[in-house]
Simulated assay, not measured.
Amino acid sequence: MQERLERRTNRDRSEAMRALLIETARKLFAEKTYAETGTPEIVAAAGVTRGALYHHFADKEALFRAVAEHEAATVAAEIERAAPDGLGPREALLAGSQAYLEAMRAPGRTRLLLLDGPAVLGRAGMDEIDGRHGNRTLREGLAIAMRAGAMQRLPLAALTSQLAAAFDRAALAVDAGSAMADQMEVVTALIDGLMLDA
């Protein structure tokens, strides 16, 4: 029993350290960019040793990957919260789209996921992360709409990829000062153009 308690405590401590490093790095990467943030600055801001950083992450890129994964998971959770089961296919896609654009307004998030992410991890690396999170929610919503007969049947992977690219451009535009309402008007028109009963 004592050994199990110690193991859990060690695991909790390890998870807390990992979370601290991710949170600290996220703040610095968002404020200064990945390229302008060094690991000495991250460990100093977190109040830990370099050994602690390298115990959890092989290098700065691995830490950035964890930050990007955490951010993408947060965005996906917002989308899922906004589009619960029970909404019609069109309503779910629109609610998820709105939630995506809102979630991407978090300070620094567009830089982390849409600018630095592909630059640091490569397009394939970010596509892999997106495929587990935001693009997964979009793909699922589109598949549901097609199965329900509410949307044109199109190649799902290609449709997901192209709509996700449009949503990413909308998020970048909002981040640069474009009106959310303007971006959502276009997103709504894109989705309605695919619907069979819009």
Rank of each mutant, 00 (worst) to 15 (best):
residue 127 D to C: 05
residue 152 Q to E: 15
residue 166 A to H: 05
residue 123 R to C: 07
residue 123 R to K: 15
residue 144 I to P: 01
residue 166 A to T: 03
residue 124 A to R: 12
residue 169 R to P: 06
residue 124 A to L: 10
residue 168 D to P: 01
residue 136 R to H: 07
residue 163 L to C: 11
residue 134 G to Y: 13
residue 135 N to R: 15
residue 163 L to I: 14
residue 137 T to C: 11
residue 174 V to K: 00
residue 173 A to Y: 02
residue 165 A to I: 09
residue 150 A to K: 14
residue 178 S to A: 15
residue 153 R to I: 13
residue 176 A to S: 12
residue 168 D to A: 15
residue 129 I to H: 03
residue 123 R to Q: 14
residue 152 Q to M: 07
residue 172 L to E: 15
residue 177 G to S: 03
residue 126 M to G: 04
residue 164 A to R: 07
residue 144 I to M: 13
residue 178 S to N: 04
residue 178 S to F: 08
residue 148 A to S: 08
residue 149 G to Y: 02
residue 141 G to C: 09
residue 171 A to N: 08
residue 178 S to M: 03
residue 146 M to Q: 15
residue 127 D to L: 12
residue 162 Q to S: 13
residue 161 S to C: 03
residue 165 A to F: 13
residue 152 Q to F: 13
residue 151 M to P: 01
residue 163 L to P: 01
residue 138 L to N: 09
residue 141 G to R: 03
residue 128 E to I: 06
residue 159 L to C: 01
residue 175 D to H: 07
residue 136 R to D: 11
residue 161 S to Y: 10
residue 162 Q to E: 14
residue 123 R to I: 06
residue 123 R to D: 14
residue 137 T to G: 00
residue 139 R to Q: 12
residue 177 G to D: 07
residue 173 A to T: 00
residue 170 A to V: 00
residue 175 D to I: 03
residue 146 M to H: 04
residue 129 I to Y: 10
residue 141 G to Y: 02
